[in-house]
Design a binder for these strands. Structure first.
Lengths: 185, 185
DNA sequence: TGTAAATTGGGACAAATGTCCCGCGATTAA
DNA sequence: TTAATCGCGGGACATTTGTCCCAATTTACA
């Protein structure tokens, strides 16, 4: 449910001493938005601690939470690789501490650090796989069927999500989520 | 609507002479399934011509079509990179001709051909971006709102989709699609 | 500490989508 | 040629989800 990538976090820690000032640290408060949809990205982030939620806001004002990302996950790499504006905004769910590097630096690492290249490939491939499965499930099952699974996963995690977030992740309204929660248990 | 990657197709054509027998060609008939969900992949494919549909079959028997892929698109790379079984099946929509390479060869290209590495990164990043947007839209709009957009895109393409495929792509039943098609025009 | 804002819970009704079923015409296979 | 299958269209009804609204509770903060 909360995706992490400890291998990548480890690698960054290993690279850090040699990278000198190329990698900096940034912090954000819970609830703070630090990547904004449809804008140019300035930096690529790797989550050092905390949890964030990438979310898409559609023209009708509704929001969809793509996933929840924790330690070692990357932000902005899709845009850096494609050279496009951001697809989604990213909000801190908890206070977060991030490693930050410039776009040039990111490409440099991709080209010169094979281990980094491999981990980014793997991270992207995992994103594709995960989102494919999530997508299919959300379309092919009713939320009443999916909710119990999510609840199990949530029980296994530490963080208590707000109803808003859970509904946003499921792509339904809070009202519907409440109805489902009442319906079973 | 039908994703393509002509840069990759071009690159493969360039590599081909030097690669000798490492890259072979395979063909499949329209409607034929050539990648099966939950199995080990043996080869990575690049579409030389034709259109295919990756689809996920859920335990309740329903199917969801992730996307439609045409010339230059890759198949099996996610599994090769992650070392996992397939997430989805792939059916030929039209007759297809595919370049095929082994998993080892694929990794070798990734490591030794920078242009190949870059294009695979870009392909994966594009998949992530596209599926994120598709996912959000499907959850945040009604199908009545999305259908017109799809129809425009379809009109721009050559291939006429079956209602089954269109419904599968939208994640709704054929019955619902028919209702929508009648409703407006 | 007190007030405003956000979160939660839910009633009532409307809209969207699914399910089941039937029939028709075209394509496929025996 | 005949039977079987498949794609298409749609009626009738059930289920799921959304929308709008209001109230109770909690949280944030001035």
């Amino acid at each position: 449910m909360i995706q992490t990538n400890l291998d990548l976090l480890q690698l960054i820690n290993d690279i850090l001493p040699a990278a000198g000032g190329a990698i900096t640290i940034r912090q954000f408060d819970a609830g703070q938005r630090f990547i904004f949809q449809e804008q140019e990205i300035l930096q690529i982030y790797i989550i050092r601690s905390g949890v964030v939620k990438p979310l898409i806001t559609e023209e009708n004002g509704k929001e969809y939470i793509l996933e929840f990302l924790g330690e070692g996950e990357m932000l902005g790499e899709v845009e850096a690789i494609r050279g496009t504006k951001t697809v989604c905004s990213v909000d801190a769910v908890t206070p977060v501490s991030l490693y930050a590097m410039g776009v040039g630096q990111f490409h440099y690492f991709l080209q010169t650090v094979p281990a980094f290249n491999t981990l980014v490939l793997r991270l992207l491939a995992t994103r594709v796989a995960n989102s494919s499965v999530k997508m299919a499930r959300q379309q092919l099952y009713t939320m009443a069927e999916l909710l119990p699974r999510l609840q199990k996963m949530l029980a296994a995690q530490q963080i208590a999500f707000t109803k808003q977030d859970l509904a946003g992740y499921m792509g339904i309204s809070v009202r519907s989520l409440n109805r489902l929660l009442k319906g079973d248990g």
